Amino acid sequence: MLTVNALTAATHALLVTESRVSSVEGLSEIVTTIAEVQENLNEDIELVGVVINKER
């Protein structure tokens, strides 16, 4: 619920991740959450990008 509250209050989202399979699966989940927040709670939020922080 904390993530949804933060996204509801935000205007932009920048996702930071690692280049691992589990991280990509997590990205899918947060992108879905952002889309749901945008549709239902905060139409102004915008996903501005994804940063790969660590590569193996």
Rank of each mutant, 00 (worst) to 15 (best):
L27V: 08
H12V: 02
T33F: 00
L27I: 14
E43F: 05
E36S: 06
L14T: 03
S28R: 08
S22C: 06
I34R: 00
I34W: 00
A13C: 10
R56I: 12
A9R: 11
L41R: 03
T11W: 01
V48W: 07
E43S: 12
L41N: 02
K54Y: 14
K54R: 14
V24Y: 02
A13D: 04
A13E: 04
A13M: 10
S28P: 00
N40H: 09
R56F: 09
S22K: 08
E46C: 03
I30Y: 00
V50S: 08
L2D: 10
G49C: 12
S23K: 09
A35V: 07
V16I: 15
K54W: 10
N40S: 07
S28C: 13
E25G: 02
T8G: 03
T11G: 14
T33M: 13
L41K: 08
V21N: 02
I30C: 05
I52V: 15
E36Q: 13
T32F: 01
R20C: 09
A6F: 05
E39C: 03
S22Q: 15
V37D: 03
G26N: 15
K54T: 14
N5G: 15
V24E: 02
S19C: 10
T11I: 03
L2A: 14
A9G: 06
I30M: 01
E18D: 12
V24H: 10
I30W: 00
E18M: 12
